[in-house]
């Protein structure tokens, strides 16, 4: 079993990879926030401008970048697949859209860290 092939753009694992990354991001955000708020909560008077929110936004930005890169790779792949390979084009197209949607979901999910204090 060569696990590396799962990362190739035409592999069906690509259909779930985008939102798997989103899921990990989601868990990391919620778990990280909960743990930090429990033990080293930033001062409430800092509002949204504190190290925790900056870190969470940094993570969000990194994940969005990764997902958009994967979407771009998928899009290029769709154009490189011969017209006869409909199944591969299907996987490429669907996974590309899912990467974009995962990026958007990450963006919308992450936006609250720009305006809300974390541990109140």
């Amino acid at each position: 079993m060569t696990w590396w092939r799962w990362w190739k753009p035409g592999h069906p694992a690509q259909l779930v990879l985008g939102f798997s990354i989103w899921s990990i991001w989601f868990i990391a955000m919620y778990a990280g926030l909960s743990v930090v708020c429990q033990f080293v909560a930033p001062a409430p008077q800092d509002g949204a401008a504190n190290w925790l929110n900056y870190t969470l936004w940094g993570l969000t930005s990194a994940v969005i970048t990764l997902l958009l890169l994967l979407a771009w790779r998928g899009w290029r792949y769709c154009h490189s697949v011969p017209h006869g390979s409909r199944t591969l084009r299907f996987i490429g197209y669907v996974s590309t859209v899912l990467y974009v949607m995962a990026a958007l979901a990450t963006l919308f999910g992450g936006l609250p860290v720009l305006v809300l204090a974390p541990c109140i």
Binding site: L33, S34, F108, G109, P112, L116, A117, P118, C119
Partner: peptide
């Protein structure tokens, strides 16, 4: 915490998409 509520609020709205 309100921020955690916001995460889940956004996700709850996203599922409508």
């Amino acid at each position: 915490p309100q921020l955690a509520q916001a995460f889940f609020s956004v996700a709850s709205m996203l599922v409508a998409v």
